[in-house]
Design a protein around this nucleic acid. Structure first.
Length: 866
RNA sequence: GGGUGAUUAGCUCAGUUGGCUAGAGCAUCUCGUUUACACCGAGGGGGUCGGGGGUUCGAGUCCCUCAUCACCCACCA
């Protein structure tokens, strides 16, 4: 097969992927004695299609996994998807409402059926997209967060936590979304700044401020800071009568430090049912709590004549009434405050008191390294003690800060899509178990668990053998002990994910996994940044043009170009902007590699990757030295998660060293064996980054019919003669200087003369070719323009008249050299430099000085003769 | 209010424990269609590394401080 002139990715990509997949190259082998390398793919939500952000994580993980395989490891990359309870639920409910019905009409069973159909479609699309990205994950181990075996794990953990007293049910204030009719966790809240009216109301002898008069009906406590001198006359527990919205009330004075004396009048009334801070104050002082707003967002009977009204409708009317009663003191129209919204669906959050399930993060009930710790303490310990490394490191601070402020985790959700809570009730009895209780009359808890409760188990629940999970006689520990994948691949090697879900997911995996398995979920967390639109702004659905769909990029530029663009110039944790210019650059790079292969194909029709290279010329030794260095550097960079650094080295190795120098030099007298070696090494190095083009080339030139690049080992170090390699550096600098002079003088052809130079003599043809000279010839004595940047004696045959044109350039060069010489002299003249700097550096500086002085002398002589 | 990150060429960004005259890609200018590649080659221009201090023989890199931008956390009635 012949390589076509231009690389057209779409012609090859899907065939190549099929070939890999069918060959079993992606499949992990827990029984093999190779060292293990395992990565759990963060399961994308089954809500539609993959974004460019998914393309980024697929690329980075694929690079690590392919590299690990090449390094002789048994690599498991376990793919999967997430049921994404809240977003999916929201989508289905929206569909239902568009059809003029709702979930209660159709019932739980029908609702779940419908949902399953939706996510099923979505899963197929997403798996196709992952394949299109070249993701070399083990499809035979594909998992879904609602799989039976994962459900088993969820129930086991819930039950055990309940038995350990880590899970409890209680009336607590929760974030209630009246739109979606469910609670959400603190982390799912987003805030939006809004300008609203701020009312000051007369409340007995006090003036109180509020932006929410509709919550004030039941207010019968007035709170102030205990040290506030303005209110020293009022004692904690004092009562007074006051006229209020719906008639006279009796109010009680409460002193609490939660009140900020600087804000407003320093006095406030509280609504414990609908505010976190007020709830805490009420708990501290054992105060009454009363519901003012119901779960649909309407006012309750407490509101009297306003009962049943929506908040927006009631607010102005309440103010009107207060005003008539003379209780409205003032209105500030420019009050700026934040309102809480549900991140999913953007419904306004109304805090409510509800009976919910919580995970206690402070109770010391976890055995960790021989001590009883709280979940919080274990989470802190794993990172502090280095059991888990976070890359980049600065996210550790964010992580610790989050844990410090962590409250008990509300895990129950009032939606139907998800893992139903394994709790049953009968009158006053409660049963908690993996299996339903015996006997009649039990009713299961209607709620489901927070999606993150099941995602938190992902690194290991996916490794439980699904067959074993069906066996109810086994406990969780036995399931783990007998699951071969768990034994082989847990803890996983790396968790690669976005920093935006460090709290949602990463922290919770650490929490649940340490508790349930006694192991950390992963040894290293690598956090990548977000892919943003070209203008640096977030891609968002409100600006559809800002969203980049990987499936639109791939046909135009190729998957490899997309992958390389996502890796190029990106550092851990930093966001990147997506621009098509990057895709173009990297498409060109793929084409470069392709064309190198085309040239080499013209010299040899088969690669011999295992043949020891036999370098002859300085160019051979030099290119081997470059390859050797690149093998080491790229390897190290990938292992240190420096993906852009690895690609930088690869890019310049292939484009600069091999294409621009080695191949051009080799054309003089091509050595098929050397070219074959150089190409196969480059393909191996390129493979993790650009798997498709590298494999396509390999398949064309492969040594035998079964060979696949994906199964080739990472290249070994190569032997070369360093001194011979350096000779080529001399050749390069001669060529560079000749090219420079020729361009400046607009010279065509020309002759280079040399005296007593073995290097030039041996490589005359190469120098002639690369510098596009007419001749390179040996002479007895110098004539023409002397080259200054090489120690070889050589002259470009130019008459004096032409050389004069160079005088300005030479003068500049002379000045530059003088500056450099002064600089180096200063440095060496400083006694503490010689004393304190390492010897090798001092030697290097001396050598530089000598070189600069030699060149300066030559330049001066030249100038003198012009 | 608390915290983190960023600030390097016209643009987008690398720069690993401090150590050659600070780099890349794109853009720009000059020349060039020589059979691997115009998705190309050769050469050039362009930066007092956000400002100011400090530590050091030596600072883009470490410390302090200020400024601007981005983000995270908390959230005040």
């Amino acid at each position: 097969m012949k390589l076509s002139k231009v690389y057209e990715p779409s012609q090859y990509e899907s065939d190549i992927y099929c070939m890999w997949e069918e060959s079993g190259a992606f499949i992990a082998h827990p029984h093999s004695d190779k060292p293990k390398f395992s990565v759990s793919m963060p399961p994308p939500n089954e809500t539609g299609t993959l974004s460019i952000g998914h393309a980024l994580f697929l690329t980075l993980q694929d690079i690590m996994v392919r590299h690990a395989r090449q390094k002789g490891k048994d690599a498991l990359w376990l793919p999967g998807t997430d049921h994404a309870a809240l977003p999916v639920n929201a989508i289905i409910e929206k569909q239902l409402s568009e059809e003029g019905t709702d979930k209660h009409d159709i019932g739980r069973e029908e609702f779940l059926k419908r949902t399953k159909k939706f996510v099923g479609n979505s899963r197929e699309v997403m798996a196709k997209q992952m394949r299109a990205m070249g993701a070399s994950c083990d499809w035979s181990r594909f998992r879904y967060t609602l799989d039976d075996s994962l459900n088993r794990a969820v129930n086991e953990v819930f039950v055990r936590m309940y038995q350990d007293g880590l899970i409890y049910r209680g009336n607590r204030i929760v974030n209630w979304d009246p739109n979606l009719q469910t609670t959400i966790s603190d982390d799912e809240i987003v805030y939006r700044e809004e300008t609203a009216k701020f009312y000051t109301l007369q409340y007995g002898p006090f003036k109180i401020g509020t932006a929410r008069p509709e919550t004030k009906f039941g207010d019968k406590y007035v709170v102030m800071h205990p040290d506030d001198k303005r209110y020293a006359d009022y004692k904690h527990g004092d009562t007074f009568k006051a006229e209020w919205i719906n008639g006279p009330i009796t109010a009680t004075v409460v002193k609490d430090k939660a009140v900020d004396p600087e804000f407003g009048t320093g006095v406030m009334t509280i609504t414990p049912w609908h505010d976190h801070t007020d709830f805490e104050i009420a708990e501290r002082h054992n105060l009454d709590k009363q519901q003012i707003i119901d779960f649909d967002g309407k006012l309750t009977d407490v509101a009297g004549e306003f009962a049943g009204m929506e908040i927006v409708e009631a607010r102005p009317k309440i103010i009107e009434k207060l005003d008539k009663k003379g209780l409205l003191v003032s209105v500030d129209n420019d009050y700026v405050h934040n309102i809480a919204l549900n991140d999913r669906g953007k419904g306004v959050i109304e805090p409510q008191i509800k009976l919910q399930w919580f995970v206690d993060v402070n109770k010391p009930a976890v055995d960790w390294k021989g001590q009883k710790c709280s979940l919080k303490e274990v989470m802190q310990s794993t990172v502090r003690e280095g059991d888990i490394k976070i890359v980049p490191k600065h996210f550790e601070k964010m992580y610790f800060h989050w844990i410090d402020n962590l409250r008990d985790w509300c895990i129950s959700r009032q939606i139907w899509w998800g893992h139903q809570i394994p709790v049953w009730y009968k009158k006053h009895e409660t049963y908690v178990g993996v299996k339903p209780p015996e006997g009649k009359g039990w009713k299961r808890d209607e709620d489901t668990l927070d999606t993150w409760f099941s995602s938190a188990l992902w690194t290991w629940s996916t490794l439980i053998d699904p067959k074993l999970a069906k066996n109810d006689s086994l406990g969780l520990n036995q399931l783990l002990e007998q699951s071969k994948d768990f034994q082989a691949y847990h803890p996983t090697t790396v968790m690669e994910t976005g920093w935006d879900i460090i709290f949602f997911w990463v922290a919770r995996m650490i929490l649940s996994t340490t508790y349930a398995t006694g192991q950390v979920p992963f040894k290293t967390v690598y956090l990548h940044g977000m892919v943003r639109a070209e203008d640096g702004k977030k891609m968002s659905k409100s600006r559809p043009e800002s969203i980049i769909d990987p499936l639109h990029v791939i046909p135009k530029y190729g998957t490899d170009a997309l992958r390389l663009a996502l890796v190029m110039g990106v550092s851990p944790g930093n966001d990147q902007n997506w621009g098509t210019a990057k895709a173009e650059t990297n498409r060109n790079f793929c084409n470069k590699l392709w064309n190198i292969a085309r040239y080499i194909e013209s010299q040899t029709d088969k690669l011999q990757p295992d043949a020891e290279p036999k370098p002859q010329t300085p160019a051979d030794h030099w290119v081997l030295s470059k390859l050797d260095k690149a093998i080491k550097q790229i390897d190290e960079s990938i292992e240190n998660f420096n993906f852009s650094g690895a690609y930088f080295d690869l890019y310049h190795l292939i484009w600069d060293d091999v294409a621009d120098w080695y191949i051009e030099a080799a054309k003089h007298n091509p050595d098929p064996a050397m070219l074959s070696y150089v190409l196969s090494t480059m393909l191996k190095l390129a493979h993790p980054f650009a798997p498709f083009v590298s494999e396509t080339i390999w398949q064309t030139l492969k040594p035998d019919s079964n060979s696949m690049l994906i199964g080739e080992p990472w290249p070994n170090h190569v032997k070369y003669n360093a001194e011979t390699a350096v000779e080529f550096e001399q050749i390069k600098s001669i060529v560079a200087e000749v090219r420079q002079i020729k361009t400046l003088l607009e010279l065509k052809g020309g002759e280079l003369r040399f005296k007593e130079s073995k290097i030039i003599f041996d490589n005359a043809e190469i120098i002639k070719r690369l510098s596009r000279l007419d001749a390179v010839s040996s002479v007895g004595g110098g004539r023409g323009l002397m080259l200054t940047q090489t120690s070889e004696q050589s002259w470009l045959d130019i008459d004096k008249k032409m050389a004069v044109k160079l005088s300005d350039t030479l003068k500049d060069r002379e000045k530059q050299l003088q500056k450099s010489i002064n600089h180096l002299n200063d440095r060496l003249g400083n006694p503490s430099y010689a004393e304190k700097a390492p010897q090798s550096l001092v030697d290097e500086t001396r050598a530089q000085l000598a070189k600069a002085e030699e060149e300066q002398l030559k330049v001066k002589n030249l100038l003198a003769r012009l």
